[in-house]
């Protein structure tokens, strides 16, 4: 009887191991399929034209005819302009809030309130952020509620909580003795915060900023509400501007062959950019932590 039970437990344990092994196969197969599809189909349009030309005439190839391939140059330009606006707003705002929470508010209730607010904001759906910016700008000035500026503002809302949270965590890791040493040397508080604590926390801060950048760059939902994409590159901050994820959405839902292929190209472009950002942030993190340890 006793032997039986031990055997049963062992068999159960082994079958759970097999099941968890199957789980990882089950999750990696569809994820690999997504990346594979994007790499193969998207890779086929990766050439000079893809990065320099604009949207092609819609076309599905008839026998004997070829379609113009075109590219996503205006969308790349638009995406980066809106990301620039978003970064200019969210990076100082998020870092400022985090410094305030950690350097001035340790153990005080509103320091926790900032963390809580950032957590809650991080959970706000991107499309609701878009609706919020639209509603806000419509009150203020309806003519700019659908523009590159509005798009940048909406993307900044996606970035702010990520920057705040990661900066906060990075600042908290800096030991208090560092602050005390700086203050004991007569260095003023703000210089201590910026030149010593923030610098020590820089790898973490940078990783957070890159993470936020990657998240906002690929987001189409917020932009759908406040910018809508459009066909053209940058024509002014109060004008609609094209964006990569929006074009991907437009192309994906179109019946035209060359547009669908271009959508895969846009998808591969986004994947590679996110990949590059995360590799860069990891390298920065590694190198800077090594440098700091090595003195």
């Amino acid at each position: 009887m006793k032997f039986d039970r031990a055997l049963r437990r062992k068999i159960f344990s082994h079958s759970m191991t097999v099941l968890s092994g199957l789980a990882i196969v089950a999750i990696l197969v569809p994820l690999a399929a997504v990346i594979y599809e994007a790499a193969v189909l998207g890779g086929s349009v990766f050439n000079v034209a893809f990065f320099t030309q604009g949207i092609p005439y819609p076309c599905s190839p008839h026998p004997g005819a070829t379609c113009q391939q075109g590219g996503i140059a205006p969308a790349i330009q638009g995406s980066f302009i809106m990301m620039g606006i978003a970064s200019l707003i969210s990076v100082p705002l998020g870092i400022g809030a985090a410094i305030f929470a950690v350097e001035y508010g340790a153990h005080r209730p509103w320091a926790r309130a900032i963390g809580m607010a950032a957590d809650v904001l991080a959970g706000v759906p991107a499309i609701v952020a878009g609706v919020f910016i639209y509603a806000l700008l419509v009150i203020y000035d309806p003519t700019i509620s659908f523009s590159a500026l509005a798009g940048g503002l909406a993307l900044s809302i996606i970035m702010v909580p990520i920057v705040t949270r990661t900066t906060e965590e990075a600042l908290r890791v800096v030991p208090n003795s560092v602050r005390e040493a700086a203050l004991a040397l007569g260095i003023s508080r703000w210089k201590t915060s910026i030149r010593i604590v923030l610098v020590a926390a820089l790898p973490g801060v940078l990783t957070g900023v890159l993470l936020a950048f990657a998240r906002a760059l690929g987001d189409a939902a917020a932009l759908l509400i406040v910018d809508g994409g459009g066909l053209y590159g940058f024509r002014g901050f109060n004008q609609q501007v094209a964006a990569v994820p929006i074009w991907m959405f437009t192309f994906a839902t179109s019946p035209y062959k060359n547009w669908v292929t271009l959508a895969w190209g846009a998808g591969l472009f986004l994947i590679l950019l996110v990949l590059a950002l995360s590799v860069v942030s990891r390298l920065v993190l590694d190198r800077m932590t090594k440098k700091m340890r090595g003195g």
Binding site: A97, Y104, L136, V160
Partner: peptide, 24 residues
Amino acid sequence: IFLVLTGLGAAGVIGLLVAFVAVL
């Protein structure tokens, strides 16, 4: 000045959340 500036950032993050609900 630094306290005010970072305080503005903090107020901005919390204010954003309040503004969200209020504006909608």
